[in-house]
Design a protein around this nucleic acid. Structure first.
Length: 620
RNA sequence: GUCCCGGUAGCUCAGCUGGAUAGAGCAGCGGACUUCUAAUCCGCAGGUCGAAGGUUCGAAUCCUUCCCGGGACGCCA
């Protein structure tokens, strides 16, 4: 209490842990460091919190657990924090149940009611690089990108909220042979007069990309099969022509890659056009989804192109890399497959670029953590690259004695309701843009139906908010690494555990304050919190958990923890809202207390939703 | 073949370093609207936590084996 700079402690788990630790030290000097194991009770009838410390303690010391619990209680000094604890509060094998006094609960909540909501930045904020989005040139964005954008953004926002200095990096796939292929194709089509570079769209590019892939990759297996099954000279001749045609196209693509690398003006112009068209569309979708990724966050593979050759030379010079079957590899501890950094034809691979990226992110950008929000299927790749980067010293900041943390926040696939990868009926990838349009149309229909009083001009933006909330929440509320089933009907049914439900809870809070203003009622920021009703207690206990939930998200990079929490909060609030009249409460003190509860709930909801990257409309 | 990830209610999913009678939502059934936005709330019903062993006071959670599903496996990204 003497250090007035230290934030006032409000977290009941922390406060109770201190008291229990003291009691344990007194009761069992031999096990002075034992964990008090304080957790919120799972069921309200057991009280507010419980200590599970007695059982492990008894096991360690070879005594009866209930007796151990009794000895802890005998030494326990909870002052006026909680209702008196007696042996009657020892339950089952030795749980100690606790119930906070209403005044204490109110005081704790009051202490959390600060501008930061109890989440203050650390004294020495870490720098965190978050790799997200990761679009590829000339490819239409689909649901796979959705996850990287949505999860990556939520992770970045969470870390920012916790006080980290976050640097977002959009590692655009804008280099290498596939890009050269499409560049070559686009240039060829333009020169043949079949394509206008100025009016190029992403749809054009998407088509040309696939054509380029086809034209460059012969169906060698088809030819082999034709020979094997003796499909006749005609079929074989056709396939042979295809193969030789593809060899020509491939040669052109390789030449285009060389031109690009050497900075040939005309080739670069075509390539830049492709990049601009792709990136504009990508950034537009980010904006629409409220994903904070902009032009300044782009750090394409091309930006590392000049670093690769010296980097590989450095690896050779320092004997980190070795030759194997003509290729250059880095062996990594605990990973059976080595990391391949140069092909036997001298070309570089995506691992090479990723090494350069890690080096830049750690050594230039100063990252203490580098986080990759990338498909979980790439986990082996990241194990290899992380291990190689650490071995090479690229993951260590200048002057630091240990390497920064490299983390792959992988995510599962988006599945359709048939549990197969989410595709259109014709088997195409679902375009992100089309997905957003459909969600918004559906949302507009429901808004119109549910709230016909809303002015026309407000419905559009609200439908947009709701559709974004629905899509993002559906993605974020499932465990990141698992696949999840995409269903418009479920996410937009607006019932139960959905994004719109959370928005609705917030809107109800805001509505109360609009109503209050109409009636000339003002909330008192410092009103005493009177928590007499069960619904008020539940809401207060839920609110107090917010900071620790957010910290857990920062550590585990699992936004679904915050989703679950916000759902519980919205649910607690709905229960409170139903059971406890606010504006029409008779006692002015009760009304003031409830208004403050509402205000706090609104702020936590808004803060949490914003941290997830969800919109926070005023009404819906 | 090797390695990784999953399997929890009819459906979609939570379940923290082992803790009480395994929880939500949807769907089903039954209640609550002269509303502080019912996009809500309350109740009922619904489970051999993939299977079998093991560890222990206690296992959905940890270990082993197996079954099922998905994925990744140097010269694509």
């Amino acid at each position: 209490m003497s250090e007035h700079h230290a934030p006032k402690q409000f977290d009941p788990v922390v406060i109770l842990s201190e008291r229990f630790a003291r009691a344990i030290r007194a009761a069992f000097p031999d096990a002075a460091a034992a964990d008090p194991m304080i957790t919120p009770s799972r069921r309200a009838e057991f009280g507010d919190f419980q200590s599970n410390a007695a059982m492990p303690l008894a096991k360690k010391l070879g005594v009866n657990p209930r007796e151990a619990a009794a000895k802890i209680i005998a030494e326990l000094d909870l002052g006026d924090l909680a209702e008196p604890v007696s042996d009657a509060d020892i339950a089952g094998p030795g749980f100690i149940n606790l119930r906070l006094k209403p005044q204490t609960l109110g005081a704790m909540l009051g202490a959390m009611d600060t501008p930061s909501l109890g989440i203050d930045p650390p004294a020495d904020p870490p720098t965190v690089v978050v790799d997200l989005c990761g679009v590829n040139l000339a490819k239409q964005m689909h649901v796979g990108h959705l996850r990287s954008m949505v999860i990556g953004d939520a992770v970045a926002r969470s870390l920012e909220r916790l006080g980290a200095k976050v640097v977002r990096q959009n590692h655009v796939g804008d280099w290498g042979l596939p890009i050269a292929m499409v560049t070559s194709r686009v240039r060829g089509e333009a020169e043949a007069g079949r394509l206008e570079l100025d009016g190029l769209t992403l749809d054009d590019l998407d088509r040309l990309y696939r054509e380029a892939q086809l034209e460059c990759s012969p169906d060698g297996r088809g030819l082999a099969a034709a020979r094997k099954w003796d499909m006749g000279p005609k079929a074989i001749a056709e396939l042979e022509a295809q193969v030789s045609g593809s060899e020509e196209a491939l040669a052109r693509a390789k030449a285009t890659l060389l031109s690009l690398q050497s900075g040939d003006a005309e080739t670069v112009r075509v390539w830049r056009t492709i990049a601009d068209v792709t990136l504009n569309e990508c950034l537009a979708i980010c904006k629409r989804l409220r994903v904070l990724v902009d032009e300044e966050h782009s750090a394409g593979e091309s930006s590392y192109a000049d670093e690769l050759s010296p980097l590989v030379q450095d690896l050779i010079d320092r004997k980190v890399a070795e030759e194997d079957h003509g290729a250059l590899i880095i062996r990594v501890r605990d990973v059976t497959q080595p990391c391949l950094v140069r092909k036997s034809d001298g070309g570089f691979l995506y691992a090479t670029t990723d090494l350069a990226a890690i080096r830049r992110r750690v050594q230039k950008l100063g990252a203490d953590r580098v986080i990759y929000c990338v498909d979980a299927r790439q986990s082996l790749h990241f194990q290899q690259v992380f291990g190689a980067a650490i071995r090479a010293g690229y993951a260590t900041k200048p002057g630091a004695h240990s390497h920064s943390s490299l983390e792959h926040a992988g995510f599962g696939m988006v599945l359709g309701e048939d549990h197969r990868p989410f595709k259109t009926r014709s088997g195409e990838n679902v375009k992100l843009a089309a997905l957003l349009v459909e969600a918004e149309e559906r949302a507009l229909r429901v808004v119109t139906e549910k709230n016909p009083d809303l002015p026309e001009t407000e419905r559009g933006p609200i439908a947009s908010d709701i559709s974004v909330a629905a899509i993002k929440y559906a993605d974020l509320s499932n465990d990141r690494v698992k696949d999840y089933v995409f269903s418009f009907d479920r996410m937009l049914s607006f019932e139960g555990n959905t994004g719109p439900y959370l928005l609705y809870a917030l809107v109800r809070v805001r509505s109360i304050f609009r109503k209050a203003a109409e009636r000339g009622i003002e909330g008192e920021p410092g009103a005493e919190l009177l928590l007499r009703e069960p619904a008020e207690r539940t809401l207060a206990l839920t609110l107090l958990r917010y900071p620790s939930v957010l910290r857990a998200v920062g550590e585990t990079l699992e936004p679904h923890r915050l989703c679950n929490y916000l759902y519980e909060l919205a649910s607690s609030f709905s229960g409170f809202f139903d059971a406890c009249p606010v504006l029409i409460a008779e006692d002015p003190a009760v009304r003031a207390s409830r208004l403050r509860l509402c205000a706090l709930t609104g702020r936590v909801l808004e803060d949490g939703l914003t941290t997830l990257g969800m919109p926070t409309p005023q009404r819906m």
